[in-house]
């Protein structure tokens, strides 16, 4: 298990509220506030079962303490989440740890920190409107099944949706 940071005399319960405020601005980012650390999320978590590093209860605790600097790093443990939603099913407080983790990943994205595979797929989507790249071979395979060629996505529309509206509050700051 990852060691929770041990408080010392100079540094007892020094909650970084700014980190928590930033997280709370993300969609469903404030849910960890309701966590009472029961650990129900851990038992059915496949990542916790197969990794010593990943523990959703500990991640929620770090959020409550405002220990953003331990989570918002390169190779963050957050990326070990399998997004299976078992934690959301088990949580008696409707915390949805998986959604808090995704909100934390949104904060990582604001810092421009991504695992390479993730960055590549996001790039493909932002460029083509799809997460799976097209090629002439794709249409040849489709033709074999009597399916029409893939049509391009109207990127003029998609690109506009990726940017905030002029009257939208900027979440990322």
């Amino acid at each position: 298990m990852t060691k929770a940071r041990k408080p010392n005399n100079d540094d007892v319960v020094k909650v970084d509220f700014d980190f928590r405020r930033q997280l709370a601005k993300k969609v469903e980012g404030n849910l960890a506030s309701f966590c009472y650390q029961c650990g129900a999320c851990v038992g059915d978590c496949p990542a916790a079962t197969y990794s010593d590093e990943f523990n959703p209860r500990e991640i929620m605790l770090k959020v409550l303490y405002g220990l953003g600097e331990e989570l918002l790093v390169e190779n963050s443990v957050l990326w070990q989440c399998t997004n299976c939603y078992n934690c959301a099913e088990r949580c008696p407080q409707d915390v949805k740890p998986v959604e808090v983790i995704i909100s934390l990943k949104n904060m990582l994205a604001d810092l421009n920190i991504y695992p390479p595979t993730v960055e590549k797929i996001i790039g493909t989507f932002e460029k083509t409107g799809r997460t799976t790249p097209l090629s002439p071979a794709v249409d040849r395979q489709r033709e074999r099944f009597g399916l029409p060629p893939m049509k391009p996505v109207p990127m003029d529309e998609i690109s506009k949706l990726l940017e905030p509206a002029s009257d939208e509050e900027d979440d990322a700051e």
Binding site: I102, K105, A109, V118, I122, F125, T131, V153, E157
Partner: peptide
């Protein structure tokens, strides 16, 4: 004129509001 949903793993991890906006479209 449909696009990627967008995917609930990668693009959602970048920006939930943009993700919701494309899904809504």
């Amino acid at each position: 004129g449909a696009s990627c949903c967008p995917d609930p793993i990668y693009f959602k991890s970048k920006d939930k509001v943009a993700w919701l906006s494309v899904a809504a479209r």
